[in-house]
Amino acid sequence: MTEDRKIKIIVAKPGLDGHDRGAKLLARIFAEAGMEVVYTGLRQTPEMIVETALQEDADVVGLSSLSGVHMYFFPRVVELLREKGLDDVLVVGGGIIPKEDIPELKKAGVAEIFGPGTPTAEIVAFIKNNVRTRD
């Protein structure tokens, strides 16, 4: 990662879930941490999220879900990213996600899951340490 290019992150709300307090808060925290943030708004299909990632040349996709649909949506986003050749985009997630689901999500290619109460600094640090490096 060169100094002049900011990390670009898509913050997305997949599905019909309307709980966006966390997503909006993190969008603000990421911007403060020097990242370039695109917030998608609500009701995003995996196809729409991946299209945005492609258009924006994003380094990171952050998915937020509190309605229990993460097992469907999160792996699908990773899958579509790979289909588009965006294998090096870091995918992270958060929301109400039972711990027992985490191993399967990680196996599907989600890099990390952040549950309720995670300090935001921890999320920022994880992204900075794991984002792809560019020439």
Partner: peptide, 18 residues
């Protein structure tokens, strides 16, 4: 459920997983 609240039938594409 959210499809009902958003006015979609259970077999609508946006209802997937919900």
């Amino acid at each position: 459920d959210l499809p009902t609240q958003a006015g979609y039938d259970s077999d609508h594409p946006l209802s997937m997983g919900e």
